[in-house]
């Protein structure tokens, strides 16, 4: 959960620096990477949520690939170390955290798509935002509860 919060903070911070598209993309790449790792771990533990976590992991992997196609993404990331996902004991809590991160990703990437000058960046951000939206829809809790 700490990892999720850290990434979310980075995403917010990068977005607040107007024009820091590389920063947003870098943070988004990290966020998708983390989301995939956490989803894969959670899927091992949850019978009722196995499908949701599995498809969320696939969407996260695709989102990360899409971000990689953005021309403004820095060629290397100083923070890429490979996430060793730690999963909270309460899977609902983890799912809430990932849904929240995915919601933030959707918002930031949609905004970045509208701000970007390069068509390649626009397409990558818009497509990745759709993947983030999908993760949110898969992992968000039941609004009736």
């Amino acid at each position: 959960m700490d990892d999720i919060e850290t990434i979310r903070s980075r995403l917010t911070a990068a977005d607040q620096l107007a024009g820091d598209l590389p920063g947003v993309l870098d943070a988004a790449w990290e966020a998708f990477d983390l989301a995939q790792a956490v989803c894969l771990r959670c899927g091992e533990q949850a019978t009722g949520l196995f499908a949701a976590f599995a498809f969320a992991a696939a969407a996260a992997a695709q989102g990360r690939q899409l971000i990689t196609t953005a021309p403004s993404l820095p060629p290397t990331s100083g923070t890429v170390t490979g996430h060793v996902a730690s999963v909270a004991a309460d899977l609902d809590e983890t799912a809430d955290g990932l849904a929240s991160l995915a919601g933030a990703l959707t918002e930031r990437l949609s905004l970045a798509a509208s701000r970007a000058d390069d068509p390649g960046d626009q397409a990558a951000c818009a497509d990745a935002a759709r993947q983030a939206r999908q993760i949110y829809e898969l992992l968000a809790g039941d609004p009736r509860q």
């Binding site: 019978t47 009722g48 949701a52 849904a99 829809e137 898969l138 968000a140 809790g141 039941d142 609004p143």
Partner: peptide
């Protein structure tokens, strides 16, 4: 459906 919102018991 395979979403958390429709999570159900076996």
């Amino acid at each position: 459906t395979p979403t958390r919102a429709r999570q159900a018991r076996l």
